[in-house]
Write a protein that binds this DNA or RNA. Structure first.
Length: 428
DNA sequence: CGAGGAGCGA
DNA sequence: ACGTCGCTCCTCGA
């Protein structure tokens, strides 16, 4: 026996016994251990990047940024560092005399919400918002991604941290490929740089509403379950119930119901809900009370989760992953509240992560057997991105959908939307 | 070099 | 303190 291998046994045995002591061995053996090789393959494969697309975008944004820099300097009447919060605050609140808003530890906040408040009364904050968006995109993505491309294969090889997040999610670093822009039109363009190889195609597969489906399963709430089983639009369904309506739902009401649905999973309070929905605090309190009357099993589930967590000292996911929460016993109200929100969110976010991890291992095995041209490339929490030979896209899509949707024995169906195209932007 | 603020994604 | 989980950029002060 090799000495190095022999020397590992005591360590492996110690780790195993520690996992067994906390009843985490089955989770490791059935889910985390099989995933190691999958992540290794994904990292080693990497994703192909078109350097020219990034360069063109950087050039355009660079010109826009220079123009905004000139405008902002003129509006301020003096040169200043556009990336410095304190200097921005001095211009906004002293020189221009605009109304101060929220405070941070070190001074007045100049974040997006504050600037949007001020944008109506002066062009400076409006221009600064534009500048912030563009400079973020350029410095974080357009300037950085070309530097981390492997010159040998023109690919970017991220590092997936398998035990990176306390909930069980993966994380991605150096570079982080789990936060490539999507929301804004300009940011979205960056996804055009992530491409399929010659004669290949990218395939993307997204879970639809996986966290709400997990909450439906864990809570057993009959209304949530029925909504998912009947294939309804879940936010529209919630809107119909909380607003007591039938038929088509006004987009504004659907958007409000969506805020409620997500807020519930994060343990959101009335104050934050009022802020997000643009309503008064009493109305927000009514809203939450009303929601929990209509979805009583959700409330029971959340209550029981907290009771169990206080008694056991931890919360657990669908597959038994634990998160210990000493903060639940804290005498500090803020710390205790944080721990309570974490206790509510972790079983939901973490169970979704469990399902995705298991699906990845199954997808990997099935693709190796049935579609050898296919490679998993990225996981972005509820999405998988892969590449395969153009002629294999149909087969790969079928397998990915089958392994992501099937074999979990939940009270609600899981739905996956699959798309394909020459760039990452085209798969959605 | 680390803390803080800010902003990108799920 | 005021909705969860991450990573990275930049500034500023040690």
């Amino acid at each position: 026996m090799e000495p190095a291998v022999g020397a590992l046994f005591p360590i492996a045995q110690a780790l195993r016994s520690q996992l067994e002591a906390r009843e985490q061995w089955a989770l490791y053996e059935s889910l985390e251990h099989p995933l190691i090789a999958v992540l290794y393959d994904m990292e080693r494969t990497g994703i192909l990047v078109d350097r020219e697309v990034l360069a063109r975008l950087a050039e355009h944004l660079g010109a826009d940024i220079a123009r905004l820099e000139a405008e902002l300097t003129a509006l301020a009447g003096e040169p200043f560092n556009l990336n410095s919060g304190p200097q921005i605050a001095r211009i906004l609140f002293e020189k221009l005399g605009l109304k101060t808003g929220r405070r941070t530890k070190t001074g007045f906040s100049t974040d997006q919400a504050v600037l949007e408040e001020l944008a109506g009364s002066h062009p400076f904050p409006a221009r600064l918002l534009e500048y912030r968006v563009l400079s973020k995109l350029k410095s974080t993505y357009l300037d950085t991604l070309p530097e981390v491309m492997d010159p040998r294969d023109h690919r970017i090889h991220t590092t997936f941290n398998q035990a990176g997040a306390a909930t069980g999610r993966l994380s991605s670093s150096a570079p982080n490929l789990q936060n490539i822009p999507l929301r804004t039109a300009q940011g979205r363009e960056i996804r055009r740089a992530f491409i399929a190889p010659p004669d290949g195609v990218l395939v993307g597969a997204d879970y639809s509403q996986i966290e709400l489906r997990v909450m439906a399963h864990l809570s057993g709430d009959p209304h949530l379950i029925e909504a998912f089983r009947s294939g309804e639009d879940i936010h529209a369904s919630t809107a119909r119930r909380i607003f007591n309506l039938t038929g088509d739902i006004d987009p504004t009401l659907r958007a409000r119901a969506k805020i409620v649905n997500f807020g519930i999973m994060y343990g959101m309070g009335a104050r934050s809900l009022a802020q997000q929905m643009g309503i008064g605090l009493p109305e927000a309190q009514q809203f939450i009370a009303h929601y929990f009357r209509l979805y009583a099993r959700v409330r029971d589930f959340l209550d029981a989760t907290l009771v169990d967590a206080r008694r056991q000292g931890y919360v657990a996911t669908l597959f038994g992953r634990r998160r210990y929460l000493p903060g639940l016993q804290s005498l500090n109200g803020g710390e205790r509240s944080l721990a309570e929100r974490v206790a509510i969110n972790t079983p939901i976010q973490g169970s979704a992560a469990d399902l995705m991890k298991l699906a990845m291992a199954r997808v990997h095995v099935a693709l190796m057997q049935w579609v050898p041209s296919a490679r998993l490339l990225l996981q972005v929490h509820d999405e998988l991105l892969l590449e395969c030979a153009a002629g294999d896209a149909e087969a790969a899509s079928r397998i990915v959908r089958e392994k992501m949707e099937g074999g979990f024995d939940l009270k609600v169906p899981l739905e996956v939307s699959v798309g394909r195209g020459p760039t990452w932007l085209d798969v959605h």
